[in-house]
C-alpha cells in the first residue's frame, strides 16, 4: 500500500525538471496553485491538463505511473465530485430522485473542481518526484530566510528537517526489527480487542523510544565534537545555482497565468 504512495517520494533522474533550481520549482508550484483558479471553462481546464502532461513528459515520468499514484487519493477525488454533483444546483435537472436531484450545473462543477484538485496533487507530486527531500529542505531554508528577521529559527528548522529525513529509513529498519523480535517472542498485534491491540504495541514502542533517545543523545555529542554551534559563522557545502532557465520557468508560468486569465469567461 505504502509503496504505491507517490506523494513525497523522490525518483532520481537528470531531466530538465530534475535539474531546475528547487526554489524555482517551489515558487512555480505556488504560482500554479493560484493559476489553477483562473480556469473556469473547458478551454482553461484543457490547457491545465495539457500543461501537466507536458511537464510529465519533460520530467521523464511515465504518465501511467503518475496516474497510478493518483489512485490513492481517488477517494478524496470521488468525494469532491459527488459533493458537487449533489449539492450544486442550477441548469437542467438531469435526474430527479425525489429527495435528491442531479442537475447539469452540478455535473459540470463536479468535473471542474475534481480536475482542479487532481492538477494540484499532480504538480506537487511531479515536484517531489523530481526533487530530493534534501534539495527541498535547502530551498525552503533559502526561501524562508527573510523570516529570520521576525526570529523564526529557519536554519534550525531546516537542519531538523534534514536530520529527520536522514533518520527515517534508520528508524523504519529499527521498527521492523523490533516488531520481528517481539513477534518471535509470540507477541500478536493483529488479534483481540482494541485495548489488547494497543497493549501489544507497548513492547514495540518502549524499545523504539529508548533507542531513539540514545540515538539522539549520541548524535548530539557527535555534532558537538564536530564543532556545531548553530548558524553563526557557518558556511554551506550545498549551494543552489539560480540559472537563466530558472528565471525562464517563472516567466513562462506567469505568461501561462496571463493566458488563462485572458481566456476566462
Amino acid at each position: 500500500m505504502l509503496s504505491k504512495m507517490l506523494l513525497g517520494r523522490y525518483i532520481p533522474g537528470s531531466s530538465i525538471i530534475h535539474r531546475l533550481d528547487p526554489r524555482a520549482k517551489i515558487i512555480a508550484v505556488v504560482l500554479f496553485m493560484v493559476i489553477v483558479f483562473f480556469a473556469n471553462h473547458w478551454t482553461g481546464y484543457g490547457l491545465l491538463i495539457l500543461f501537466i502532461l507536458t511537464l510529465t513528459k519533460m520530467a521523464d515520468l511515465s504518465p501511467r505511473f503518475l496516474f497510478n499514484g493518483l489512485k490513492l487519493i481517488l477517494i478524496l477525488l470521488l468525494f469532491t465530485f459527488f459533493m458537487h454533483l449533489f449539492l450544486t444546483k442550477g441548469g437542467t435537472v438531469l435526474i430527479d430522485g425525489g429527495f435528491f436531484t442531479i442537475e447539469s450545473e452540478g455535473v459540470i462543477t463536479g468535473i471542474y473542481i475534481t480536475i482542479r484538485l487532481a492538477m494540484l496533487v499532480l504538480i506537487t507530486t511531479i515536484m517531489t518526484l523530481t526533487t530530493s527531500p534534501l534539495q527541498l529542505t535547502d530551498a525552503i531554508e533559502r526561501i524562508c530566510r527573510p523570516l529570520k528577521a521576525i526570529r523564526v529559527p529557519v536554519h534550525e528548522i531546516a537542519l531538523m528537517m534534514s536530520i529527520s529525513l536522514r533518520f527515517i529509513p534508520t528508524l523504519m529498519d529499527e521498527t521492523e526489527k523490533i516488531i520481528k523480535a517481539q513477534s518471535a517472542r509470540g507477541s500478536t498485534f493483529m488479534a483481540g480487542s482494541l485495548t489488547s491491540r494497543l497493549q501489544a504495541l507497548t513492547p514495540i514502542f518502549i524499545p523504539l523510544f529508548i533507542s531513539s533517545f540514545k540515538r539522539a543523545e549520541e548524535l548530539a555529542i557527535a555534532m558537538e565534537v564536530r564543532g556545531y554551534q548553530g548558524e553563526e559563522g557557518r558556511t554551506h557545502y550545498r549551494v543552489l545555482n539560480w540559472e537563466f532557465k530558472d528565471t525562464m520557468v517563472l516567466i513562462l508560468m506567469i505568461i501561462f497565468g496571463i493566458i488563462l486569465w485572458v481566456i476566462r469567461q
Binding site: P133, L134, L165, R166, T170, K214, E218, L219, A222
Partner: peptide, 9 residues
C-alpha cells in the same frame, strides 16, 4: 555506533 554519528543526508 555507525548510525548515530552520521549527521549528513
Amino acid at each position: 555506533n555507525p548510525d548515530n554519528q552520521f549527521v549528513g543526508a
